[in-house]
Computed example of a mutant assay.
Amino acid sequence: MEKSSLSGGRFFLVTVLNVVITIFEFIGGLLSGSLSLLSDAFHNFGDALSIVLSYAAHKIGGRQQTRTNTYGYRRAEILAALLNALVLVVVCVILAVEAVRRLFHPEHVQGTVMLLVAVVSFGANLLSTVLLNRGAKHNLNVRATYLHLLSDALASVGVIVGAVMITVWHVNWVDPVITILVGIYIAIESWPIVKQTLGILMEASPDLDYEAIAQDIERLPEVEGVHHLHAWQIDENNIVFSVHVNMDDLPLAEIEPIYRQIETLLCRKYNVNHVTIQAECHRGEHEALFYDQNDWRHE
């Protein structure tokens, strides 16, 4: 990913845009009586906070490894992505509850004011998404922030449609309905990020064909077996891999070239970034591919 896609200047500009539009929408929502505008204002305020959090996490994640953090600080971005996505879901639930209340007790909405504010908001949100679009393709943290902004742009479109309907047909119930629909969309789009970040934090195995990996390693002439395989992710782009390999009783100078073959295989074919290999002669040769704690206890 290009550094420009995550530059401090872009983050600062997007933050300023969201703060300005938050104030504009909040005032417009109070003047027009529109729940969807007020919900969008709170959403934009959350966006501004998430952008600051995202940028801070990105800077922290770029730090070098230390004695106390030997894998570096990349998990900071995963934590930020999870927090951003969870905040979105919570906000959607709160707004949906208020929207349901308004369905049963409709309130007057000034469609003209609502329409003007929504159009300006849409333009600002669209510009924000364009500024972060490229960075969102390769970074889960930025993708979560990008989703915030994209959902705001979509919400603004919904508010514009609702404002037109309220102005022309005076159907005030459209306002809470739009709020509910946008909330459902945002919650659905946020769930994959929540699921992926939780998986990374719980060190769930990345989606790899482990049986095929074992077969590829065992095809090497010097390798007789593979067991106790582990794989996890530091972030969405970096996979850590460890494996025990059975082979003949060879000098270390002869084992190292085999290590390099395995590392090259895993890197080029399976996009593994960091490999740890433990060579063994007969220990564990009858054990399963994946580590079983009971096997260790009976050794």
Rank of each mutant, 00 (worst) to 15 (best):
Ser190Arg: 13
Arg268Phe: 08
Ala214Lys: 09
His227Val: 04
Thr179Gly: 04
Gly183Trp: 01
Met202Gln: 10
Pro206Ser: 01
Ser151Arg: 00
Pro206Asp: 03
Tyr210Asn: 07
Asn238Arg: 14
Glu203Cys: 05
Val272Thr: 07
Ala204Phe: 04
Val226Lys: 02
Glu254Ser: 10
Cys267Glu: 14
Pro221Trp: 07
Ala253Ile: 15
Leu181Arg: 04
Tyr210Val: 08
Arg268Cys: 09
Leu208Tyr: 02
Ile258His: 01
Leu229Ile: 09
Glu189Ser: 14
Ile166Glu: 05
Gly158Arg: 08
Ile255Cys: 15
Glu203Thr: 08
Val275Leu: 00
Glu218Ser: 14
Arg260Met: 11
Glu211Ile: 10
Asn237Arg: 12
Met165Asp: 07
Gln261Pro: 06
His170Phe: 14
Lys195Leu: 13
Leu266Arg: 10
Thr167Pro: 10
Thr179Gln: 04
Ile178Arg: 06
Val159Lys: 10
Trp173Ser: 15
Gln233Glu: 10
Trp232His: 08
Asp249Arg: 09
Met202Pro: 10
Glu203His: 09
Glu263Asn: 07
His227Ser: 08
Met202Gly: 09
Val177Leu: 14
Ser205Glu: 10
His244Ala: 05
Asn246Trp: 01
Asp216Leu: 03
Asn237Gln: 12
Arg260Gly: 07
Asp207Lys: 11
Ile258Ala: 07
Asp248Trp: 05
Arg260Asp: 14
Thr197Leu: 02
Ser205Pro: 02
Met165Trp: 12
Val157Thr: 03
Glu263Leu: 10
Gln196Pro: 02
Pro257Gly: 01
Pro192Ala: 10
Leu149His: 11
Leu250Asn: 06
Gln196Asp: 12
Glu254Leu: 09
His227Trp: 01
Asp209Thr: 01
Asn237Pro: 05
Pro221Ala: 01
Leu250Pro: 00
Val174Thr: 05
Val223Trp: 00
Ile186Arg: 12
Glu256Asn: 15
Glu254Asp: 12
Asp248Glu: 14
Ile200Asn: 01
Glu263Met: 09
His274Trp: 06
Asp248Phe: 03
Leu208Val: 04
Gly162Trp: 06
Val157Gln: 03
Ile166Trp: 03
Tyr270Gly: 13
Ile193Asp: 06
Gly183Gln: 04
Gly199Met: 03
Lys195His: 13
Met202Phe: 11
Ser242Pro: 08
Ala212Leu: 13
His148Trp: 14
Ala153Phe: 10
Leu201Ala: 06
Arg260Phe: 07
Trp173Gly: 12
Pro206Lys: 00
Val275Pro: 02
Arg260Val: 09
His170Pro: 12
His227Gly: 03
Leu266Tyr: 03
Ile186Ser: 15
Met165Asn: 08
Val164Ser: 00
Ile180Cys: 05
Leu149Gln: 10
Ile180Gly: 08
Leu149Cys: 11
Leu229Cys: 10
Val182Thr: 06
His274Asn: 13
Ile258Gln: 05
His230Pro: 08
Val240Tyr: 14
Ser156His: 03
Val157Ala: 00
Val157Lys: 02
Val174Ala: 01
Asn172Phe: 15
Ser242Ile: 13
Val243Trp: 01
Lys195Phe: 13
Lys269Asp: 15
Gln261Asp: 07
Met165Ala: 14
Asp216Ala: 12
Val157Glu: 04
Phe241Lys: 06
Gly158Ile: 09
Leu250Glu: 04
Asn246Gln: 01
Val171Glu: 11
Glu203Trp: 00
Ala214Asp: 02
Met202Arg: 07
Gly158Phe: 05
Glu263Gln: 11
